[in-house]
Amino acid sequence: MPDTTDGWAPPPGSWASSASRRRNMQAIRSRDTKPERLIRRLVHAQGLRYRVAAKPLPNLRRTADMVFRPAKVAVFIDGCYWHGCPEHYVPPKTNSGYWSEKVARNVGRDRDTDQRLTDAGWTVLRFWEHEPPEQCALQIAATVSRLRPLKQDA
């Protein structure tokens, strides 16, 4: 196992090239990111309620950032790096083969998720983390309002 001059050796099975890289990778959030929290707050302020980090379909091992079950709307706020944003993705300089393949797998999984949800009658909304949160929230609210079933008077 490789050992660096400071005595740090990566744990078995780790792709981390250094202790600082490992700390950096561990600090990256998979949910409750700043863009997600901001968009959720704006959507909530419009009176809409939703599930956070929930599986839209019980047999699908993937979660959406926001799920509106009655309207069958799944919302994803994708990070530019991890989901290969055409505007902002920059391939890494170190271990580029591994990370580029990982991002390509993420993009493929995103397309597969979109297709599975669409086939099951769901509407999928995807936003990039750099998009204006106010515009995202307005589009989410408009879509959910349009697709939400009307409540019947008792």
Rank of each mutant, 00 (worst) to 15 (best):
T143Y: 13
M25E: 03
P70T: 09
M1C: 01
H83N: 14
P91E: 13
S100E: 15
Y81H: 12
R116G: 01
A141M: 04
D6S: 00
W122P: 04
G13A: 07
W82N: 13
D78V: 08
E36I: 09
A137V: 01
P35K: 07
R21C: 01
T118Y: 00
P10M: 02
I39Q: 05
H44Y: 10
V90C: 07
S18C: 08
P91T: 09
K55D: 15
W122E: 12
T123H: 14
Y98H: 09
R116P: 00
L60A: 07
Q139A: 12
V90R: 11
D114K: 13
I28N: 06
R146H: 06
K102A: 13
N24M: 01
T113C: 15
T118K: 04
E36K: 05
V67R: 01
P2C: 06
F127G: 09
K72R: 10
S17E: 08
W122L: 12
D32P: 05
L57C: 09
T4V: 00
L117Q: 04
V52L: 06
T143S: 10
S14Y: 01
F127R: 00
W99V: 04
G79L: 11
P2H: 08
R148A: 14
E36R: 07
P91A: 15
P11S: 15
Y81E: 13
R148L: 14
D78F: 06
L117W: 00
A27T: 10
P2W: 07
M25K: 01
D32C: 05
R40P: 10
V144D: 12
R51K: 14
Q135A: 11
S20P: 02
M66F: 01
L150M: 07
K102L: 12
L60K: 03
D65K: 01
R29M: 03
P92K: 06
R146M: 05
A104V: 01
D32Y: 06
G121Y: 05
R61T: 00
S20E: 08
R105T: 03
P132I: 12
